[in-house]
């Protein structure tokens, strides 16, 4: 067991855990944040996506100790006080979430994409989300949600 200190959605936490525990399990089991999902455990599906120091990563492939000192943002950290983030709002309105199991990861990947390219082309959206598999939507409505979110996040906000 090792002590691991990290900032999760703005809060600093210290946890005792095996250093090779997957960050995914640390988040779900020790931090009780179950919005981060496991779809494959092999880096393929992106359901476990989180932002680690602002970078999109698959938390199933990060040993807990490598997250020591890191800033982690999960789906629970995307909304503010229960208010939907514009990306979440667009996924909701545009039918970007069906069964919803890929949705948290998809929203984090979108968040990361829009940080990198505020005005992504469709190709950039396709590439940016290619690590997040969705079996329900055929992605069309997800692209639509992302394009809508581009418009929304362009508008000045006060955060």
């Amino acid at each position: 067991m090792t002590q691991i200190t990290l900032t999760i959605n703005g809060e600093t936490k210290t946890i005792e855990a095996p250093p090779m525990k997957r960050l995914l399990d640390l988040i779900r089991e020790d931090l009780h944040l179950t919005g981060t999902k496991e779809g494959c455990g092999e880096g393929e599906c992106g359901s476990c996506s989180v932002l680690m120091n602002g970078e999109l990563v698959n938390s199933c492939l990060v040993p807990a100790l490598q997250a020591n000192g890191a800033r982690i943002c999960t789906i629970e950290g995307i909304s503010t006080k229960g208010r939907l983030h514009p990306i979440q709002q667009c996924f909701l309105e545009r039918g970007g979430a069906q069964c919803g199991i890929c949705t948290p990861g998809m929203i984090l990947a979108t968040h990361h994409l829009l940080e990198k390219y505020p005005q992504p082309t469709l190709l950039q959206i396709q590439e940016g989300l290619a690590g997040n598999l969705c079996r329900c939507t055929g992605y069309t409505r997800i692209f639509d949600a992302v394009q809508q979110a581009i418009l929304k996040t362009q508008q000045p906000t006060n955060n």
């Binding site: 880096g43 992106g46 990563v57 492939l61 990947a109 290619a130 690590g131």
Partner: peptide
């Protein structure tokens, strides 16, 4: 190589 998340790591 892989996806964006894989390229980040």
């Amino acid at each position: 190589t892989g996806s964006i998340a894989n390229q980040n790591r």
